[in-house]
């Protein structure tokens, strides 16, 4: 094979790789309500700032308490109950996020999406522990 042909093949390959990766990312975004919300908010110029601080003591305490309950839970039943309760909160918050986005209330949508992120973190921690037993 000529080296020119190889160069073309290489280029095609990298284009295909890039497209496939983009498609994967798009699909993952569409699958996740949180990523979808973050994408829409980013389109409005509202980005997730790495150095942003959360200073709502009430909310942090709520998250802290649930995380602590999950950590302290020693049986499957308690964990399932906590996880179920949290999943209800997640559904409720997803509803709020979509409503706020529909209303183009970006600031409140951002706050709700942050809340969703934390609740999903709780869900992940609970699931991880349930599967650990």
């Amino acid at each position: 094979m000529s080296s020119r042909h190889m160069v073309t093949e290489r280029r095609t390959f990298s284009i295909a790789a890039a497209q496939s990766s983009q498609l994967n990312k798009a699909y993952q975004t569409l699958l996740s309500p949180l990523l979808r919300a973050e994408y829409i908010l980013a389109k409005q110029g509202i980005y997730e700032d790495e150095n942003e601080k959360l200073e709502d003591p009430e909310f942090i305490t709520e998250i802290m308490d649930i995380r602590q309950e999950i950590e302290d839970a020693s049986d499957d039943e308690t964990l399932t109950r906590l996880s179920k309760k949290n999943k209800e909160k997640i559904d409720l918050t997803i509803g709020q996020v979509s409503q706020l986005i529909q209303d183009r209330n970006w600031k409140a949508a951002k706050t709700a999406s942050t809340r969703l992120k934390y609740l999903l973190g709780i869900d992940k921690a609970a699931e991880k522990k349930i599967h650990h037993y």
């Binding site: 942003e52 305490t61 998250i63 802290m64 934390y118």
Partner: peptide
Amino acid sequence: GLVGAPACGDVMK
């Protein structure tokens, strides 16, 4: 002290 980092979903007391 209660703080959180929304970017990674961390909470710290």
